[in-house]
Design a protein around this nucleic acid. Structure first.
Lengths: 221, 221
DNA sequence: ATAGTACTCACTGAAAACAGTGAGAAGGTT
DNA sequence: AACCTTCTCACTGTTTTCAGTGAGTACTAT
């Protein structure tokens, strides 16, 4: 009979812990032994507990001590704890930083359900594991480029927009088509078209992308 | 025999939906009928579905359309849908805004487990319900104090982009048309079209605006 | 009363974007 | 040698966006 894999889960959202437990406990090989709601709790648990966990599922953002601090603690004390990061942050820098801190797996919360069990088993065996979206981010980072930006948002232009134009602008940034906007706003397609053209003219851009970029620059989204 | 309360859950994190289902389904009176991963899906579901839900559990931050937009849609179309917000944001302004938009309950994700069932039953009966931490925030807001809150970027699935795809993506954000890009990159119009379509598919967005917004979020521009 | 602005809608025509399919060449990997 | 990825291009057809013009209603300010 194969030995069980013991897991400790750390996340400040209890509901998410319950979700993970529900998913993990469908697998006979894995058992969630305990959980923590803050980084401090994690460290305390590993300090004062004989029943260490084989794998630690760790959130980045937690009160008291975040995931980074927990990883640093393990590294500092040369504790060879296998850690899988479960995070909403799909940023390259964060992924690279936790890898430097010795974590063995990284799963985006967006699709944790399909990855968590596989990840635990892989990491327990000493392998690494990354969900496919994280893999993509790591690959992309190899051909990265940085372009700094610096422009003043144009208050005059922004003020000149009417309520309806702002409605349309916001929906455009959410990828609505004209027909969809008309439906949503209970307006004629022609009317929405009018606002769209008015926006193009007022903001002096050539297409919907220009509108979206303007909206971003001026924190309308 | 008492009638069941039918619930629809909307959150962009599947794992959280699974957690909620696990908790809710312990109660015989409540049944989760369906779920959505984006605001758009929620609206589509309520548009095209005979089996409406009694209560909608709604996350604020979702791709495509966020919780605010969903509430606005209900309000605009005079749909009297009972909504409980399930959110990580414990900010007064947000709570007040969703209340203005007609939502009947607000639960913090931090302690959703103990509140969700009670909240559903209360709201289904036409009452309001707020988890105790939210109540505290509302009370605190009456005695004037502001506590700024952090941010949670919600990025989603990413396949790795090729060099050429990145070239095209960058030019799209600069409002280049396909023909202009072809000229600039010394490529056929058809070729640029191919990259454009490939980007739409890989990044799972529906138009050039979606591509631009993705580029912004991921600091490609 | 008049002028201005916002809101609403219609019509036409051209340009661009989107969708689907197929396919050859070059390069690297196993 | 077989395979995979990327890059390149073509063809067809539909949908959406963009451009220009015109026009009625309502409310506000002078």
């Amino acid at each position: 009979m194969r030995e069980k894999i013991y897991v400790h889960v750390a996340d400040d959202h209890k509901i998410l812990i319950e979700g993970i437990m529900a998913v993990i406990n469908t697998d006979e090989e894995i058992e969630v032994r305990d959980y923590s709601l803050t980084g401090q709790e994690v460290i305390d648990w590993f300090d004062n507990n004989e029943n260490k966990a084989d794998v630690l599922i760790l959130d980045i953002t937690m009160p008291v001590l975040d995931g980074f601090e927990v990883l640093k603690y393990f590294k500092k004390n040369k504790i060879n704890q296998k850690v899988i990061i479960l995070s909403s942050y799909d940023d390259v820098k964060i992924v690279q930083e936790v890898l430097n801190l010795g974590c063995k797996g990284y799963i985006s919360k967006n699709n944790a359900g399909v990855h968590i069990v596989k990840a635990i088993k892989a990491v327990a065996k000493g392998q690494q594991y990354f969900s496919d979206d994280i893999q993509g981010i790591l690959l992309q980072s190899l051909s990265g480029e940085m372009v700094p930006q610096g422009e003043m948002p144009d208050k005059f232009l922004l003020d000149s927009l009417t309520e309806r134009e702002l409605d349309v602008l916001k929906l455009i940034t959410k990828q609505y088509s004209t027909a969809e906007m008309a439906d949503f706003l209970n307006l004629s397609v022609n009317t929405v078209e009018t606002y769209r053209k008015s926006l193009l003219k007022k903001l002096n851009v050539k297409n919907a992308v220009g509108l979206a970029m303007y909206a971003v620059k001026n924190n309308i989204v």
